[in-house]
Design a protein around this nucleic acid. Sequence first.
DNA 1: CATACGCTACGACAAAAGTCAGACCTGCAT
DNA 2: ATGCAGGTCTGACTTTTGTCGTAGCGTATG
Lengths: 222, 222
Amino acid sequence: MDDQLSRDLKAIPLFAGLTERTLLELSRVALRRTYAPGTLILLGGDPCVAVFFIVAGQARIYRLSAQGRQQVLATLGPGQSFNTAPPFVPEASNPASVEAVGETTVLTLRKDTFLSLVRECPDLSWAILGDFASRLLHLTDLVEDLALRSVRGRLARFLLEQADGLYVNRQWTQDEMAVHLGTVRDVVGRALRGLVDAGLLRIERGRIVLLDREGLEAESDS
Amino acid sequence: MDDQLSRDLKAIPLFAGLTERTLLELSRVALRRTYAPGTLILLGGDPCVAVFFIVAGQARIYRLSAQGRQQVLATLGPGQSFNTAPPFVPEASNPASVEAVGETTVLTLRKDTFLSLVRECPDLSWAILGDFASRLLHLTDLVEDLALRSVRGRLARFLLEQADGLYVNRQWTQDEMAVHLGTVRDVVGRALRGLVDAGLLRIERGRIVLLDREGLEAESDS
DNA sequence: CATACGCTACGACAAAAGTCAGACCTGCAT
DNA sequence: ATGCAGGTCTGACTTTTGTCGTAGCGTATG
């Protein structure tokens, strides 16, 4: 009956090392939920009650300022998890808000269920250690970006990261880029024009063409 | 003979759950090292070969920009560890540079020794999970600070954090504060004067007096 | 006592970032 | 076709941040 749920559980890489038995138990306590595009899944600052695993769709993890500006911390897809850190820290609350990008399906486990699961399964804690570690490295990079680089530099780096070959195909609106870079749309627009004027890239309908990767890398450290 | 080393090992909270036997093994492979004030312990970007545990003194973890500006990620004291994340991520290099603040003594373990130790000891991996989790939360806060707050706001928050009651006793130079806030001395100076002019604090010889905590908290979100 | 040094204060300036308003373009729904 | 909405381009303007040079002040050192 809960066939679907079991299949979803098996598709989560973090759960790869679990036994059939544990998975079966999990399928009894995990909740499956689907959110419409743009829905708020989790509000930063609220007490932490559960952890989440993405089955389908995408989730945007972000912080909000008092003036309503956003900073995106990550955009996660199927198989990835969020809100897994606070359960390990007593009294911690949700570190950030999360919203569904497209239609998004998640599995959730209550905080204490998750913790006892981790205690019992060495494989799982190993996997989470790897996950946490790479998130730490990623956040450290983000901090350096924000503290030590100009918007123009951050934009150059961002485009290089997003680029698939010479092209950035995905339809990024300037607003989306802005929240990833911790700034506002207008400034992204100016920075983009600046890079175009410098001959480093060209903007076409629906995509951006990187004309000079080396030039962009030079821009990217500052 | 390696009595000192064993005693040092026992003083590291992360190792609290280890058996005598394991500690003994560790005392054979761990290296003890002391650095003079200001010495570079670890260079960011170099391949990761070892993890570190602080026995005495303090270590400043920071990133450097191309222009030589710094951003401090953390200042750690006895019992705390650094460079423990990269071993869990294949190919990862040291995420940041580390230097000794005062005279500082550390224990080091080779990366692979550390990893097999973690694999064998559930207690240890549990402790590291907690450590990583709180670092993640801390870094997330830092990102929000840098992305969404002005220097003045960050300074207000910083002072509130550092304050012991109404006083910030430690002798922070403006330069030190600047590298914690991701900016430069001059700007910290201006921001400080601004807060003084607003009547929120007073600067005395060797310490700062917070006159209006609520006012500072109001300043701190922006 | 003189000097050197580290830290701070201050003003002037330049660059970067944020804010605002108006106009345009496109696709879509009425 | 009309109107609307979302996204973009543009320029003007303000504020914030970073940079520079100079000067003051205290402590430590000779």
